[in-house]
Design a protein around this nucleic acid. Structure first.
Length: 802
RNA sequence: GCGAGUAUGGCGGAAUUGGCAGACGCGCUAGACUUAGGAUCUAGUGUCCCAGACGUGCAGGUUCAACUCCUGUUACUCGCACCA
């Protein structure tokens, strides 16, 4: 039989026998392994998918044999712009395109032999699924977690389309190259900002890899500081946020955001309105553009006619507009202390403003000396009235206390993470189940009327003014208000791609439930995702959205844990053989189908596990792939060496036990490459012998099976064993993993001068004697004084001489 | 700029804890078997001035012993980028 036949034979066997079906319940210990479900693009499965799916597949296959009830599901994250674009071009419904793509992806996955439980398969675009995404949105709404707000969006005047930040990179429309503008739009928002602290704390209840936790922490971006009220000369006030209250006596001006609310309020009193308005306009054009290039200098204008008062010393200072201050972070206004903030320093130089040093930490004539440089030193305060002479960290606390006591300020935390903009002006997404009634305002759909289906039409160009294509479909838009029954209009925006992927792992626990998104019983049984693998590019945003979503569901009593994902790891990319990211334009794309056809699925799987450290990027190498093919062939050829003896070959005992232990460790610690290496070593040990027993061979095949499941099942059947996927994982004997006789190195002053054979039972003294007795060692210690001899059992002997 | 990660032969990469650096594989060299070899097998393969010395980006340090720990530094990759 050739490889193709063998592979389809076993794939059919697994399908027919539902070998990998995960039942909810039972006595076995549940274990939930999850890989990120893919976006089924027209390009088909990528070799990068194969890498992580194989890794987790190997883990799943081994753990099933070890007696776990393993849930290893697969589904489709199929809403999104590419399917919509494709559909517009070809005048078909995106669901048709998605159906085709899913078919391709599924066939590809099956041809590689992943042990997914296909009975739990679903797509985020299935009405049975997005019904519950909509239902959950309604819960957000009902708990005051969803609201409408007017915020600027990227707008391409040529394409008449709203663009994502990625599509508007550099301030130019990715599709047509026109200048992107800012347009105000009313959008649905989720109050994710309220969860910042909980999302930070929740990390303690996870086992995420350190670099993943750090990514989350950085994205949340907590900073602790003081919010200070500032009076305006002649009435009025505003607040600023600072993380450096110790520098407050160094304020020489304030800067407010051109896109903030404050300047609008003050506009009546502004003397140079034209200049200020021009600057506001200029900023609007610039915002969201790649500002790096544009901000070599610090632009800004003075707001003439208005002065602010430094709350701690009553000093009157000017107010400026500056686009480096963001309207939507903190209070939209900052105090400027040019002596101790480089950005303020540059601004002051540019606009000829006063610089007052308040920390005696050296020369500031060339650049500011910032917090990172002055904190942690014993620098003393100067020019700060009663705080003069205090060290910086003492002054920091004292000044904060003083501000709070005098009612001038409050200690607060600020977060970079904002509320979640939840509206997309797209057709191919979950419709937001809200109705706008002229009498009742925004009214949620009744839960029993879900799902709110997407209309079945084939034409959906975006509207002239940037509304979602749904706005053109009047039959769909016009509806009755669920509350008063009068004429009303539906919300035409749809949800972002991130919505459906924020809870899909819960659905897998109970995929066919039509009463709930998933039953509490099923979720309690599976407990949480034990092991979640995905790309580094999703460890910040997707994971954060998913955690936020789950924490909300937990708070309203719908899921059993506040964190439903225990371990999160991320894999490296598979690069082209030229060591850069695979892309059509570079012509370095490898199609997994071609590899399966030419070399077989087992070889592809083995190679992708062997190619390098799982967590790091690795370039594709067809030569290396061929090496893995040779290895598989070698394993297959060993069948000719199988003899009639029973039991295991004695001389192999130690290496066999060691290999079992190693594979178990490696497959659960992402050491896939070294797992294969140890299997190669075992194979070579077998190959060195005249013959091996059936048991020997069966063991090797079992150990290799999680990685190369087809050929191992076939060979295993040929020697008369029942299928490996229905067998138990072998057990090793710890005592037998230790070699009784071992060769260790003898060093003299840290340099290897010889080796000796030691037995496990040898004591330090006899090892020492053996070491001193070695011919070459003798030569090196002759005539020298021996200072000491270090014996590390089973490892090394080091003789220190003078 | 900030944060994180990485750096080991010609190449991909090993080295659970500080304990013989280069496992395993690729590539390469020589040979065997062959009508043939892009099959298979055998031997070799870090560098050099080869009884020895030097070698894990670079410069120091700690230690009997450092790829591993500490200090400084360089380059590259990724993420965020005026976050007060």
């Amino acid at each position: 039989m050739n490889i193709k036949e063998i592979e389809s034979k076993w794939q059919k066997y697994w399908d027919d026998n539902k070998s990998f079906k995960a039942e909810t319940g039972g006595n076995k210990k549940p274990y939930y392994i999850l890989v990120e479900f893919p976006y089924p693009s027209g390009a088909g499965l990528h070799v990068g998918h194969v890498r992580s799916y194989t890794a987790q597949d190997a883990m799943a296959r081994m753990m099933r044999m070890q007696g776990y009830n393993v849930l290893y599901p697969m589904g489709w994250d199929a809403f999104g712009a590419p399917a919509e674009q494709y559909a517009i071009k070809n005048h078909i419904h995106p669901k048709e395109a998605v159906k085709e793509n899913i078919k391709t992806f599924k066939a590809q996955m099956k041809s590689i032999g992943f042990s997914f439980d296909w009975d739990r398969e679903f797509s985020t675009t299935d009405p049975e699924y997005y019904k519950w995404t909509q239902w959950q949105f309604l819960q957000f709404y009902k708990h005051g977690m969803a609201y409408k707000d007017t915020i600027p969006v990227n707008w391409c005047p040529t394409c008449k389309s709203v663009l994502s930040n990625e599509d508007a990179a550099g301030g130019v429309c990715e599709r047509c190259g026109s200048q992107v503008e800012q347009k105000e739009k009313s959008q649905w928002m989720l109050r994710m900002g309220d969860y910042a602290e909980d999302l930070l704390k929740g990390l303690d209840d996870t086992n995420f890899a350190d670099r993943v936790k750090l990514g989350q922490i950085n994205w949340i971006g907590k900073s602790t500081g003081v919010e200070v009220d500032v009076e305006i000369v002649g009435g009025g006030k505003f607040s600023i946020f600072t993380t450096c209250p110790e520098t407050i006596y160094g304020i020489t001006f304030f800067v407010i955001a051109p896109d903030g609310k404050l300047i609008k309020e003050l506009m009546d009193r502004v003397e140079n309105k034209d200049e200020v308005n021009a600057y506001i306009k200029e900023t609007a054009l610039k915002s969201n553009m790649d500002r790096t290039e544009l901000n070599k200098g610090k632009t800004g204008v003075e707001v003439k006619g208005i002065k602010a008062i430094n709350p701690v010393n009553g000093k009157e200072v000017p107010i400026f507009l500056g686009d480096f201050v963001l309207g939507d972070y903190g209070t939209g206004a900052v105090m400027a202390v040019p002596s101790h903030d480089q950005r303020d320093f540059e601004y002051a130089k540019e606009h000829n403003l006063e610089i007052i040093q308040v920390i005696d930490c050296g020369d500031i004539s060339e650049h500011a000396i910032e917090k990172t440089e002055y904190m942690g030193h014993d620098y003393k305060m100067i020019n700060s009235e009663e705080f003069n002479g205090m060290t910086v960290d003492v002054a920091r606390e004292k000044i904060s206390d003083m501000l709070v006591e005098k009612g001038l300020g409050r200690r607060v935390n600020n977060y970079k993470m904002r509320d979640w903009i939840f509206s997309r002006q797209r057709f191919w997404g979950e419709p937001i189940p809200m109705v706008n009634c002229p009498k009742c305002g925004w009214v949620p759909l009744n839960e029993e009327d879900l799902p709110l289906l997407l209309p079945d039409v084939a034409e959906y160009e975006p509207t002239e003014d940037g509304e979602s294509p749904l706005a053109n479909i009047t039959d769909w838009v016009n509806c009755k208000c669920p509350k008063c029954g009068g004429d009303a209009k539906r919300e035409t925006d749809t949800m972002p791609n991130w919505a459906g992927s924020s809870w899909y792992f819960l659905r897998f626990m109970d995929a066919h439930n039509d009463k709930e998104f998933a039953s509490m019983d099923a979720m309690k049984y599976w407990n949480r995702v034990d092991w979640y693998n995905g790309g580094m590019e999703h460890t910040a945003r997707h994971l954060l959205y998913a955690r936020f979503w789950v924490q909300f569901l937990y708070n309203i009593g719908l899921v059993p844990h506040k964190e439903m994902i225990w371990t999160r790891v991320s894999h490296g990319m598979v690069l082209g053989s030229d060591n850069v990211k695979m892309s059509k334009s570079k012509g370095n794309v490898i199609n997994p189908d071609d590899i399966v056809n030419e070399y077989g699925a087992d070889t592809l799987r083995t190679y992708e596990m062997f190619m390098g450290d799982y967590q790091m990027d690795a370039p594709w190498s067809t030569d290396s792939l061929k090496g893995c093919k040779r290895f598989i062939d070698k394993v297959a050829r060993l069948i000719d060496k199988v003899n009639d003896k029973s039991g295991f070959t004695e001389s192999l005992e130690s290496i066999q036990n060691k290999t079992i232990k190693k594979i178990e460790y490696d497959l659960t610690h992402m050491g896939y490459n070294t797992a294969i290496s140890s299997l190669m070593i075992l194979t070579n040990a077998y190959d060195d012998l005249e013959s091996i027993t059936k048991e020997d061979y069966h063991l090797l095949l079992t150990l290799l099976n999680p990685i190369a499941p087809h050929i191992t099942e076939e060979l295993n059947e040929m020697i008369g064993f029942k299928p490996i996927c229905e067998s138990e994982w072998p057990k090793y004997d710890e005592e037998k993993t230790v070699e009784t006789v071992k060769e260790i190195a003898v060093q003299v002053n840290g340099k290897v001068r010889g080796t000796i054979e030691v037995r496990v039972e040898d004591d330090d003294n006899s090892i020492k004697e053996k070491a001193m007795d070695n011919e070459n060692v003798k030569k090196h210690i002759e005539g020298h004084e021996i200072v000491k001899v270090i014996v590390i059992k089973g490892k090394i002997v080091n003789i220190v001489i003078k």
